[in-house]
Each structure stands twice: as structure tokens, then as C-alpha cells.
Nucleic acid binder design. Sequence first.
DNA 1: CTCGTAACGCGACTAAAGTCGCATTACGAT
DNA 2: ATCGTAATGCGACTTTAGTCGCGTTACGAG
Lengths: 252, 252
Amino acid sequence: MRLESTLNGNTSANTSENARTHTFENPHPEPRTPTPRPGGRSARVRAEVVAATLAEVAEKGYDGLTVEAVATRSGVHKATLYRRWTGVDGLVADALTASADQSWPLPDTGDLREDLRRITREVFTVFTDPDLGATPTALILAAQRSDAGAAALRAFFTARHRQAAEVSERAVARGELPAGTDGAEVVRAATAPLYYRLFVTGEPLDAHTAERAADAAALAARAGLFTTAPPADPAPTANPAPTANPGPRKAS
Amino acid sequence: MRLESTLNGNTSANTSENARTHTFENPHPEPRTPTPRPGGRSARVRAEVVAATLAEVAEKGYDGLTVEAVATRSGVHKATLYRRWTGVDGLVADALTASADQSWPLPDTGDLREDLRRITREVFTVFTDPDLGATPTALILAAQRSDAGAAALRAFFTARHRQAAEVSERAVARGELPAGTDGAEVVRAATAPLYYRLFVTGEPLDAHTAERAADAAALAARAGLFTTAPPADPAPTANPAPTANPGPRKAS
DNA sequence: CTCGTAACGCGACTAAAGTCGCATTACGAT
DNA sequence: ATCGTAATGCGACTTTAGTCGCGTTACGAG
């Protein structure tokens, strides 16, 4: 009985391996836990596959991404890709996980609104530039397609928001924001309108919109809307009125 | 030579039909334009297929949606589904287009912040309720997967934002907001943080966040951030500083 | 009502995605 | 260095998605 071990960053990718193992009817189960071999060839294979996935996604978009093409480009056999990464979804999730380790500089202008403007301008610049934006766009779209991808995306953004919270922490220290401000929420408020257009509504995004989103977030933060205390207003009433829903509805 | 005609709401779905026609090498081209037959059986087929698509999406999610299953559930042959709707993407786009015709009531409390709170609370309620939210969630995710779906999604949200702009128009008339406020932008600002969590970052969404998003949008609107005039600040400098990008990056 | 043909159903078929059993390679522990 | 076996490559194979040619049904125009 052959057991594939769990490799770094690929816990989800080995699910089908475990599942296959469990379906093998061995009347004498071997309780021994296999020792992972994450180094050498395995590490090289992963690096080659991640690189090939990113290249394929950048070139063909998420919809054109196939296991066959990644196999060809990476020189890794497709059986390995299916075994270790389950399929396209696992490849995307792993590529995203690999991208999450990138460090990135935070703006520090001494003014919160300007910091936020720089953040939103960068998001705008990257995602509206065909060359810069192809890979991240495709990765986000691809990641949404599966539980594994969505989990990797959540981890990615959660970490990014936590890091970017520093711009608000500095503003608090400067006395620009009230103590107890949730810095990650400030960054979310600033970037959400951009990602909303880019990835939900598909409406056009311009530099002015990016700037305005930052300004609105800064204004709200200064007004104390993002303090971790609950709002001063009473809780919603127990009888919500019929309201508008801008989302799609199930057809009757 | 058989030509399939363009049907209501299915212009994208007939692309492959036209493409097939064009690839047929007929030395004597027939210049006659076929007369569409959108009524009777064709209308019944469309209704059955849209209903089946919505049911399948609600039950199995966007990832479990297959042409085969829609064909089985609707009783329409899969060859027809491929011919008329091209595939899963066309089915989703059409289901979304069919959903877009639903009318929906707007809140009118006499107070902008409360109106926006009701809108965001409704979005929150629908998308966090497993029963109410399954279909719209799956439709949005599925629509993002193709150009046709994305176009339908854009049309859907653009129309919704335009309609919801009425809450701001009323606020302007009440003297609550400055003249020239872009009402659609106000609604976008209110709802974007919700959809960002739901569909981009996958982070949890609670009622407090929904409420706060409405409050921040109302605050910014009252401050005049959404007037259609450009901002009073000078344009961005010609030399942008290196800034943070909270999106994924291409691995080096 | 008739008629031309758009739209559809069908089964056979092709293409693409994914799996399996076997042999080989190479990673860690000793 | 040796050894057990994790990880991989391979080709054949299965499953699922999508296509094609033909005959049938039924929609509008006249």
C-alpha cells in the first residue's frame, strides 16, 4: 500500500490521494504513518508546476487553464498533477499560496488619506494594466471556483488586510484616528469599491473612483466608524421593513 | 442549409450557430435572412431551461452545474442546449438575464442613512441565508466565469444601481445631499464592502459590517464626495511613489 | 389552411478531462 | 553507503463534455 504524504502548502491537493488510499480494501491495514519527502525532486516539481500555472494563467486566462497545458509547460507528468493537486483548482490554490509569501512595501506618507490613496491607486494601476493585471485577475477568478481556491484567497486577503492595517495604526499613533480603530477594516473600506467593480459588477473603474474610495474610507475612519466598539445607534429593530436587494433573485 | 435565428435575450447563445454556418463551405451562398420563431415551442423551451438552470444552480452550486443535468431536468435535449446556449456559460447568462426583469421595492424612510442601511441589510440577509442566498450566489459566481456571463452581470448591476440611485435623488430633493450627487455611486459605496467579502475575499460578513458600510456611504455622500464634479484636490502627481498592492502578485 | 424552414430530438461520434496499474527514480532515516 | 518506500513517469483506459448528420416537429408568413 502506497501512501502519498502531505507536502508543504498542499494539504488540500492531497485529498484525493488520501481518498484513494482509503478506498483500497486491505484486510491488514498498515498503521504506520509515511514520512514525507518534501525536499529535492518534490520541491523542484512544485516550483516548476507553480511557475507553469502562473504562466499559463497569465497567457490564457483562468478559463483557458488546463492540467494538460501545465503538465506540458512544466515537464511534470499530468498523472502527478492530478495526484498531488487534484486538478486545475488545486493548481490555482497552490499558485495563490505561493504568491502570498511575497513581501510588499506599505506607503507611509504621514497622512492617512494619502496612504489610502496610494494603496487604491496601486490596486487600480495593477488591475487595469493588461500586463500587470492579467495574472492576479486570473488567479482571483480561478480561486473563486473551488473551496480550496476560495480558502487560499481568504487566507491571502486576510493576511494582506492585517498587514495593511499598519497605515491606520500609524494614524492612530499620530492622533489622526481614534484609538481602537480596526485598521484592517479601514483598508477593506478603501479597496472594496475597486474590487467590487473589477470582480463583481464588472463595471469600469477609473482613477477618480479609486481616489474617492480612499477618501471615503479616510473620512469614515476619522469619524470613528471603524472603532471596534459597536455603533452608538440602537440595534436594528426586530421587525425589518421590506427592503431593496440589488442582487439577483431566483426567478419565480 | 439550416440557419438558427437570433432569439430574444439569447444573442450570445447563438454565436456558435452563426459560426457553424460560416464554416460551411457553400459555393452558392443564400443571402436570405431567416425569420426568427421565438414563440410557441421555443419560448416554452427557454422557460423550461431557465427554470432548470436555476434549480440546478441552487441545488448543486455553480461548480456542479452541467449541461447534461439541465437537459435531464428540463426535458430539453442537450444538443439543443449546446446549439442555442453554447454551454453552461450561456445557460447562466440567460438565467441571470431572466432574473434581471424582476421588480423590487426601494426603501423610502425619509432618511438616507436609514435607506442605505435597509439596502445593505437586505443584501446581508439574502446572501447569508442558505436558502435565500444559494441561487443568487451561485449565479454571480457562475456569471463571472465567462464573457457572456460577465456582460449579463454588468448589465444587471448597472441597472440595479441606477434604480437604487433613487434613494439619493430623494435625499437631494430633501436637501440632505448636495445637488449633483451621483446616486448610483452612493449605492455602490454602501454595498461594495459586502460584496467584497462575499465574492472576493471570502471573509465573514456580519450585520454590523453591513450597517457600517451604509453609514460610511451616507457620511461620504453628505460630505459631497459623490458629487459628479471632480474632487477639489489637485490631480495625482506625475511621479507616483512605490505603493502597496493588496492583490496577488506574479511569483518571480 | 398551406408551406417553407426554424428549431428541435436523437444516436453515434469526437475531444478533452481524469484515472489506473505498473515500473522507475530518488528522498530521508539509519 | 544501504534500504524502504514516497513520489514520479508512463501508456492505456474510462468518464464527461461537446459535436455532427439526419429526420421530425412546429412556427409564422401568406
